[in-house]
Amino acid sequence: MLVVWLHWDHKTVHQRGPEALLRSRMDFLLLLPHGQRVVLEVDGSQHFIRDCGRTPDTAKYAAMVGADRELKLREYEVFRFGHDELKLIDDARTLLQQFLPDLFRRFRVNSS
């Protein structure tokens, strides 16, 4: 059995305040058989730029990869997708139709 947990917060940054988003960690969490936990992240430019501009923010990037390390030490597998990979529906479908069967094979998830 495959269990997928998805959290979506419909409130805006203005409503919650920017600090609230610091606690938002996973885009998707797949709870697979045998206690396997897989995190899927979709990253836009907010993960590596400063002030909605074009200036790279190495501190933001370092915090993101640091959080990935922490998850991996707690036995989560983390897979990241760039926003542009999933922006167009046909591109997203092609990518996910290849990725998901490969992911399920790796973690020995069968369709029965």
Rank of each mutant, 00 (worst) to 15 (best):
L29K: 02
F28D: 13
R80Y: 12
S111L: 11
L21Q: 14
E77S: 06
R93N: 08
P101W: 11
E75L: 08
P56G: 00
L88V: 08
L103I: 04
H34N: 15
Q97T: 11
H14W: 12
A20T: 02
V4P: 01
V39A: 04
D68P: 00
R69A: 15
Y76P: 05
Q36P: 00
V78Y: 09
L29Q: 02
D102M: 14
R37D: 01
E77H: 03
R16I: 08
R37I: 08
L71V: 01
H34C: 14
I89M: 02
V38W: 07
T12P: 00
K72L: 05
V13H: 03
F81H: 09
K87E: 11
E19Y: 12
E41P: 08
L22E: 11
F107H: 04
F99I: 10
P18R: 09
A59G: 01
G17H: 03
T12S: 14
R105G: 01
V109D: 06
V13R: 12
H47W: 04
R23C: 07
F48D: 05
V109A: 06
V42K: 07
R105D: 05
D84T: 07
V109Q: 06
P101A: 07
E75R: 14
L6G: 02
L31G: 07
F28A: 09
L95T: 09
F28E: 10
A63T: 07
F81M: 10
Y61W: 10
F104Q: 06
W5T: 06
D51A: 14
M64K: 01
M1C: 05
H83C: 01
M26Q: 12
M1N: 09
D84P: 01
D102P: 03
L103D: 12
L30K: 08
T12I: 08
L100N: 06
A62T: 07
H83N: 05
R37G: 00
S24T: 11
D51P: 01
I49L: 04
Q97N: 13
Y61Q: 00
P101L: 09
R105P: 02
L21F: 15
Q46I: 05
G53C: 11
L22Q: 06
S111E: 13
P18I: 04
L2R: 07
V65Y: 05
V65L: 06
L96W: 02
D90V: 03
I89H: 07
R16A: 14
R108H: 15
D27C: 00
E85Y: 05
D51C: 09
L100M: 12
Q36E: 08
T55F: 02
N110H: 13
D43E: 11
T12D: 03
P18M: 06
K87F: 15
M1G: 08
W8H: 09
R37N: 12
I89W: 02
Y61M: 02
D90G: 01
L40S: 01
R54M: 12
F48M: 05
E70W: 09
L86M: 11
L2E: 09
R74H: 08
